[in-house]
Design a binder for these strands. Sequence first.
DNA 1: CCCTGATTCGC
DNA 2: GCGAATCAGG
Length: 169
Amino acid sequence: MARCRNLGPLQMPVLSPTWTNERIELLKQHFEAGLSCREIAADIGVSRNAVIGKLSRLNLTRGRTVDERRLQDRASAPRPPKAVPRLQFEMFATIYGEADTTVVTGPIDDANRCSLMELDENSCRWPISTPGAEDFFFCGNAAHEGQPYCTGHSRLAYRPNSRARLMRG
DNA sequence: CCCTGATTCGC
DNA sequence: GCGAATCAGG
């Protein structure tokens, strides 16, 4: 008789299906949407490496060491303002728990969702993908100048402490 | 120093 | 198959 043997990763019941079809769809859509792995990870709720690992397994790489892409993205992106120091500031505030109130506030509502064509410079461009839907929308909420996302989604783009990395002596 | 993604490698 | 650790580039 075949007895229940430990199969490693399958030992977990149905409570934690790490990568389910829904998550994979989100992963793909966010990936195609041009989101960074960290952003995708933040949205799905997994670590950055998890996203990258899954993408690699799915052979969904952006061609090459996206470094080239990000450079071009910084230079001629649709509308990525000087969000580099801005993003760091948001992360910093998030980590330290200092709510600047200018960014950390307001729930996320999809009353103003729009398509890519309808995106404005002051519209949140956070991709809203609904599992099962064929097309996805963008948040479209009011995004302040210098911010690609609305208040709610800006906070969503938090970052886990990077300094927690323990380097081997 | 920070960031990024890609790969390796143990589980 | 999964993701942390590590590697490699900017």
